[in-house]
Nucleic acid binder design. Structure first.
Lengths: 197, 197
DNA sequence: ATTTTTTTTTGACTTTTGTCAAACGCCTTT
DNA sequence: AAAGGCGTTTGACAAAAGTCAAAAAAAAAT
């Protein structure tokens, strides 16, 4: 892939990164040089349970879900849209096997950076620790929001919360994944939807 | 409070901070000088819903819970034990009013640092951004663990997970708070306990 | 030691959600 | 137009959890 093309693809993500604080030009160049672009098919698995999460991915296009198994059943834990950074946190931070998998729900474009490259990035540009900290704080906040959702007692409340906080997902993601994300089953979600309309 | 006394109180917390990487002596001195120690009574409210979370607290002793209201009912969202750093994430990071409150479940000893002091700390010691990032990553990980708990479908599974991951809390925290933390009601928790024993 | 208060458990009943099987609607393929 | 596949809805019934009131147990106060 041409470097100019890669640059264009990464541009909106870099802009997101700069929301807090502008980044040094060399840092941005380093990012463009070191990220790789991936084209992912619908349903393709990006990370399998049991593998160690060696990359941080950025969604440039498409939707990715994380899921794990509870017995036979799949549980969808996160739904990730453009400019979201994806890792399996425990696995990535501790470089141990993941208990969850990552899968594309649509044909998607991702950028990825290797764990060791990210480590190097923090060494080369210590100021990037500030960005890393702010980003992690943001992810902590949205994780708390998912917790808030799951603490809603009634299926109806969960669905309303979902509509409010994740409006861009409702028409993009099959209901079975949304139901699972909300911790209810698909039939219950379907009944909730009928009641609300 | 004497500085030597404060130093002794903070010592185990500083040791926790140094688990990843030793800290410069001046940084540790700065922390000892700038943290304030608070003695908190049982049931005392540390932060009230609607207030902005201006401090980061460290539990040196005791147990703190966070909770918010859903209608009339209180929902306990976190239970925090020694050396845990406490903030109301959204409120602290964005300096906007909190939707949750913080309360001591036991007589507790806390150390606190003002938001602006923390900001100053990051400026004075840029390397502390690394520590901040690692800490935030850790809190992200344990937040995901709470999510994992709430995604368990059956009350029995939630309680077993709680016993496994939070063994130090089971004999210290009244069951009504644990039930609420698990997203079930107290009577259900009581019945689960009978069935398990 | 006794009383009072708080915490935990129990019982009877209601509400909510899950389960399984089948049907429906819509898009794509032949 | 018919057939197949996928996502969504519906129905009948079972299981799980919630609610309210009261009892029992444990802890704290007098």
């Amino acid at each position: 892939m041409l470097i100019t093309e890669k640059k264009d693809l990464l541009q909106p993500f870099l802009k997101e990164l700069e929301k807090n604080q502008p980044l040094q030009t060399e840092l941005k160049e380093w990012l463009v040089n070191n990220f790789s672009i991936l084209n992912i098919q619908k349903d393709e698995i990006i990370l399998s349970e049991g593998e160690t999460c060696k990359y941080a991915w950025v969604v440039l296009n498409g939707i990715i879900r994380s899921f794990h198994y509870v017995g036979e059943a799949e549980v969808t834990s996160r739904l990730m849209t453009p400019y979201h950074i994806i890792i399996s946190p425990e696995s990535f931070y501790t470089q141990t096997p993941a208990f969850e998998s990552l899968q594309a729900l649509q044909p998607s474009v991702l950028a990825r950076l290797h764990y060791q490259q990210l480590d190097l990035l923090y060494q080369l540009f210590p100021s990037f620790n500030y960005v890393g900290r702010r980003l992690t704080e943001y992810y902590l906040f949205i994780t708390e929001r998912r917790l808030h959702l799951l603490r809603k007692q009634k299926a109806t409340d969960k669905y309303k919360f979902f509509l409010e906080k994740y409006p861009d997902l409702i028409n993009e993601v099959p209901l079975k994944y949304i139901a699972s994300f909300l911790g209810i089953n698909q039939e219950t979600l379907s009944r909730v939807r009928r009641k609300i309309k």
